[in-house]
């Protein structure tokens, strides 16, 4: 084989000079973005407005053959809302307090269970399975029992919410505590860290994103628990007012309760989300 000559042939760039690697294109990209932003907010807003308009004009009533006393008009609901605003506000805060207290209690217990299960994995995981099955238990079945135990005051609903929020927290927190990077665990071992230190410096921090996921799930679950608990034996709260209004055929007031419950639910969720942002800035899910 004759291979003395050069085997590699250079190629000269023809025409365009190197170094023009960047071209300004800022203006166009920016404008496109603004338009997109407008579509993201405007379109759902438009859809919502259209929905209410059709409702107000009784389009749904015609399609499903409903009377206005069955499905009240948005204006009637608005009127009920403003007429009873003081009452609604006090009942909303009552229900929200039940939900929040129950959620705090349930989440704390759930977190504790998760810690025990993570510390003694072989027996803990089995116990966790039992707690997880609580997730599938219909809360309505708990309501009469909790009323027997705690009477018709706040306590009964707090207990219901506690039970329903416990499972989600236990499962998620346990996942966060046990799904630790094995190398990080090795590092802790190399420091001769004991079980307590591993928990303090590694497992708990690692579980925080999962804990907030559970808290977000639990905001909705706790509102549902509190409202459903009030349906049956109660003399106050949104759930009580809601089921009572339906019973006495005051449908607009019932709908007003739903509006308040939805607003409270969203508010509760946003508070937890804000806490999450403040607490786990370091997590990838929080980066833009």
């Amino acid at each position: 084989m004759d291979m003395d000559g050069p085997l590699v042939t250079s190629i000269q760039p023809n025409g365009a000079a190197a170094g023009q690697g960047t071209v300004a294109g800022q203006g166009i990209a920016k404008k496109r973005l603004d338009f997109k932003e407008a579509g993201r907010i405007g379109l759902p807003l438009l859809g919502g407005v259209l929905f209410f308009l059709l409702w107000q004009l009784q389009a749904f009533h015609r399609i499903f053959d409903l009377k206005t006393y069955q499905l009240p008009l948005p204006t009637a609901i608005g009127a009920a809302l403003s007429d009873n605003f003081g009452l609604l506000l006090s009942y909303t805060s009552y229900t929200l307090a039940e939900a929040a207290l129950g959620m705090l209690l349930g989440s704390a217990i759930g977190f504790l269970i998760a810690m025990i299960a993570a510390a003694w994995p072989q027996w803990g995981a089995g116990g966790l399975m039992l707690v997880a099955s609580l997730n599938a238990v219909p809360i309505v079945a708990l309501a009469p029992i909790m009323n027997l135990w705690f009477g018709d005051e706040m306590g009964a609903r707090i207990a219901i919410v506690t039970v329903t929020t416990m499972a989600a927290m236990a499962i998620n927190a346990h996942k966060g505590m046990s799904m630790v990077d094995p190398l990080a665990l090795d590092l802790m071992h190399s420091y001769a860290a004991g079980k307590r230190h591993v928990f303090r410096y590694l497992r708990i921090a690692n579980s925080l994103p999962y804990v907030f996921t559970a808290l977000k799930i639990n905001t909705t679950a706790s509102m549902i628990g509190a409202i459903v608990g009030e349906f049956f034996v109660s003399s106050r709260g949104l759930g009580y007012l809601l089921s009572n209004s339906v019973k006495v055929a005051k449908m607009p007031l019932g709908w007003a309760c739903i509006v308040m419950a939805a607003l409270a639910g969203v508010l509760f969720y946003l508070i937890v989300e804000w806490l999450e942002k403040a607490f786990i800035k370091w997590h990838p899910s929080q980066r833009a």
Binding site: L66, Q70, L71, T219, T220, M223, I224, I227, V228, F231, L238, G239, L242, S243, V246, A249, M251, G254, W255, C257, I258, A261, A262, G265, V266, F268, Y269
Partner: peptide, 18 residues
Amino acid sequence: VASQMVPILGLAPIVYGI
């Protein structure tokens, strides 16, 4: 997404009413 934050079961009496 918003529906996930709303206590949906609260609608049960309303639906039953309708």
